[in-house]
């Protein structure tokens, strides 16, 4: 683990120096004018909020500033962060009250699904829950071995079939195993798939039907994993995965880089899907519960670890 601690330490420094730059820029504003709002809009767009949503947010901000009679430019940023945090707050916790409860992890290719499962398993284990993993990515090369390594690291069992087998059958077997062993939480990995591929989205739909049939009345969390580096396409991803599998939450990964993941604001706004966790690295303890205030601050570089 020492290696990764060093790593995150180094990264934080870089982020902090960027934060200072943004901070001093705001100090240079002496009055609230058009330029200040333009500057804010620019930062939002550069954080992947999207031009349309960024403009919307700035309009709302103007109203708030007027309403509250704010005259100090330094307070405008704080107001904006509050506004964004308000938009993102709520629904962070997973609902896993039944035994078993099921978590299905979905998303496009390479976003961090399998890694997130490893981290989440360790999290749940630490909170005293028993977990079983289903290796339902039977498509990608060595995906099962990869999940196997994470199962070992988190010290949880994994149900696997051979590469190329039917993913729905893996899910079926994992649910049966969970029921017979009295396990608290089932987590199923799935193959990465682009949301515009109908046959792959149908396959996902089939998996959700198997879960509904085999675990009726059980709590189900369908978590869409989004890569924070992704731009506006994440909106399409959220829409399509919601349609196909009814997502209950989002995990936003790779926030340890310089990408800010601002596109989730538009997603939360449009689809009302809460953000549950953020991924901040490749190690097993690099998963954190989503914190709307910290996220809003980090959009402007003032990230708090």
């Amino acid at each position: 683990m020492g290696f990764f601690e060093k790593l995150t330490g180094g990264l934080k420094k870089t982020r902090d120096s960027m934060a200072k730059a943004v901070d001093s820029m705001f100090k240079s504003f002496t009055k609230i004018d058009k330029e200040l709002f333009e500057e804010l809009e620019e930062i939002l767009i550069m954080s992947d909020v999207g031009a349309v949503t960024a403009a919307d947010i700035c309009e709302q901000l103007k109203d708030r500033v007027k309403e509250k009679g704010i005259t100090d430019p330094a307070l405008v940023t704080a107001e904006l962060q509050g506004l964004i945090a308000d938009m993102l707050r709520g629904g962070e916790a997973l609902k896993l009250t039944t035994k078993p409860s099921v978590i299905l992890i979905i998303g496009v290719n390479g976003v961090g699904k399998t890694t997130t499962i490893g981290k989440l398993s360790a999290n749940l284990r630490a909170s005293g829950k028993t977990v079983v993993l289903g290796a339902a990515d039977t498509f990608r090369a060595a995906a099962i071995d990869q999940l196997g390594v994470w199962a070992e690291r988190a010290n949880v069992p994994m149900i696997r079939h051979s590469e190329g087998s039917d993913p729905a059958a893996v899910v079926f077997d994992t649910l049966s195993a969970a029921k017979s062993r009295g396990v608290d939480v089932v987590i199923c990995d799935t193959a990465g798939r682009l949301h515009n591929k109908k046959n792959l989205m149908d396959e996902l739909n089939k998996i959700t039907r198997v879960i509904a049939r085999e675990a009726p009345g059980c709590d189900l969390e369908v978590l869409l994993v989004l890569d924070a580096t992704t731009g506006q396409n994440a909106l399409n991803q959220a829409r399509e995965f919601k349609d196909a599998a009814g997502i209950t939450g989002i995990v936003l990964t790779k926030l340890d880089g310089t990408a800010r993941g601002g596109v989730v604001i538009g997603i939360k706004n449009e689809l009302q899907v809460p953000i549950k966790y953020v991924g901040v690295g490749e190690a097993i303890d690099d998963l954190q519960p989503f914190d709307a205030d910290a996220f809003a601050k980090a959009l402007f570089g003032k990230g708090e670890e």
């Binding site: 767009i45 954080s47 992947d48 496009v108 890569d227 992704t230 731009g231 396409n233 800010r260 596109v263």
Partner: peptide
């Protein structure tokens, strides 16, 4: 480079 990359593409 992932073609879905957003604003961070320039930094990367």
């Amino acid at each position: 480079v992932d073609s879905m990359t957003g604003q961070d593409a320039v930094n990367v």
